[in-house]
Write a protein that binds this DNA or RNA. Structure first.
Lengths: 217, 217, 217, 217
DNA sequence: TATGAATGAGAATTCATTCAT
DNA sequence: TATGAATGAATTCTCATTCAT
């Protein structure tokens, strides 16, 4: 992605300070969205002067993009490993979901920012951002499913694109439920770890029945 | 729900004027989100004085909540009819989805507000909103599924809460795909009417295989 | 000139208050130029809230243009009467100069603003402004000279455009000298009223010798 | 002039570097005026650190004054040669004008700064600048005219101070017309080279008639 | 009850100046 | 001597909210 470089002043900062700034900013964006976030509030929390932030980032948008990009890099790493595992498609899906869970547990703000931006109109670069980060997207799921079909794990008459859409929907929803419950304990679905496990198992079960060759594998 | 009552002055207004105010506000909130929406802009479009708005609603948040509540009431109405239809659970689901489509087509702003607000702002505010919407999967879908199980349309070992969650996720994602493509042609999945139809068909098909008694049809 | 209307809120103000605002703004623009003028400073001097100024004028530029236009209207009036007087061209010139003097004495800030703007690049509308207000410009002087030539007051071989340019230069310089000395008593040319009178007389004298038919009238 | 000395560190710099700094600063001041000029922008263009500029000059104002003074010295040099020429006063004037033209063509920024500053900012600042420039009409023109009168080239009854003022005004206006048309084609008087030549000729002609001994040539 | 002018806190951003290295 | 990061006051402008009429 272009135009997300911070000024070199920022990169010259002690890593500890860089991190403090990014995480404070992430927390502000996560809580208030792009428009709502206040640079005033960020500098105050970090404990630097207003002008300093502008030594580090060209403007609010650049700061946001950098924080977001930082999140993207973290997220991409989290899913990489699974693709190559020699396990059935259903196991891959299960792993992916739990990789997602681990990710939002470790970096809750990043996913929150993603959720915030998803439907905020006036983030000028919204389309680009959404395209960049769909946690379990076509790009990730469809190849997985195709290979599974070739291996005979999925019935030949299954509409793979449909299946990818369905998986995406489910996985993202689960992530949302997990995140929300994790972050502010709204507990929409009483989504504690135990319940989540049960949901995932039940879902994989239905999936198998719906997609797998020969039904109950 | 508490705190969403407008002042009495608003309810004393001619219905036509009430409607004009709500719909203008809805359009502003849909376009700019809660924080971004400008009361200035609303009163200007409606053609009333700024002070008047404060005669009708205590503050911006109250106005927003009332508009949102208004949307909820519309949505509930749209689903009422289906519950009573004497058709299989899978047909009910199909009907529900298309009812949703018709709804967002008829009241695009309402759904947009919902999307905007889904992850916006401070927790207590959001909690109230989302809590309201759980009605869909728990109060609407779960009873539907329970009755279907009783009628033997669904395998006895299916985890109904899980299934409700799954249906909810799918329907919401479809609505999102439909709405987004409808509203600003982001078209994450190129979800034109034809594609949507195909998705729904394929999905109902998988659902049947996953949930229905008799397994692989 | 377009786009110089203040908001109606401003026009609804008591005339006394309108005047106080315009004159305070004029004084600020005169002292600091367009870029340098501070709205903060203006509202503080006037004793109104920062937001109020924005109820009156769309932005800094609109405020400036209004103040400037207000000056233009004053200036145009000051020169109108002379054109029609039944006196020799040299008397008309003398009258014009003193009309200018009276004007800058009465409205010193207006002329100062004009001088400020003359060479300030970043006033976006600079070209238009300069075109609008050249105190003794071609548009004003050339017709005067043409009629004088027709009446035989000026030698037929005089290049009128050149003469207009020359008159313009002289008159404007005199105005500047007068203004500067009047405003901050720099006294570039010890340009007190007496000296100014002597300068004007001597100059008209040279002019007659240079331009008039038959030399010494 | 007091207060325009740079710090010793600046004078210790290689001449080439001094020049680069002054000319870059001149270009910035010319383009944006005193208030508008950004030290950030200057140091960036020159390629030195911001702190360094403060090693060389006490502050922004000192830098500006030094740049301006540098221009004055250049201008004085340009006029030196003419004074000693053994030609009639009218020829000297003609030469002076064209010397001025050549100067603004060679150092357009210097003259622009002069124009910018002419009426800018607080009085004491300006007083210093304009005082400096009076040298032209009083220290340069007046002696020229006195000698011409002694040589009998000018009528004995001519008010020389007045004449100096007049010449000054004309020459400045011509320079302005020339510069403005040269710099940004505002072309108040469409003052292209040809027109300028015609203006100068016509003007010298009128001057002769107005000032010269023997009157109507 | 309706109005809309007034308010002032708060937004993002700029920039001359300082100072530790 | 040279550096450039840090500062914070100042800039223009927005907007929810109040309140006198």
């Amino acid at each position: 992605m272009k135009g997300i470089e911070p000024k070199k002043t920022f990169l010259a900062l002690p890593l500890e300070k860089q991190k403090r700034i990014i995480e404070t900013a992430a927390s502000e964006f996560a809580e208030r969205g792009f428009k709502g976030a206040s640079l005033n509030s960020i500098v105050e929390k970090v404990g630097i002067a207003k002008g300093s932030l502008y030594q580090y980032f060209h403007d609010k948008q650049h700061l946001f993009l950098y924080v977001f990009d930082y999140g993207i890099r973290l997220a991409k790493g989290a899913l990489k490993e699974i693709e190559s595992k020699e396990i059935s498609i259903f196991e891959q899906i299960r792993y992916s979901i739990f990789a997602g869970f681990r990710f939002v547990k470790k970096h809750p703000l990043i996913y929150q920012i993603y959720l915030k931006i998803l439907f905020e109109d006036k983030v000028p670069f919204r389309k680009k951002l959404i395209g960049t980060l769909r946690f379990y997207s076509h790009k990730y799921l469809l190849p997985l499913l195709k290979r599974a079909k070739e291996r005979g794990e999925i019935r030949p008459d299954v509409d793979l694109e449909m299946a990818a859409f369905m998986l995406d929907a489910m996985m993202e929803k689960m992530l949302q439920a997990y995140t929300l419950s994790y972050i502010d304990s709204i507990g929409l679905y009483k989504a504690d770890d135990k319940t989540i496990n049960r949901l995932v198992d039940a879902w994989i079960d239905i999936l198998k029945k719906g997609l797998a060759n020969g039904g109950i594998d």
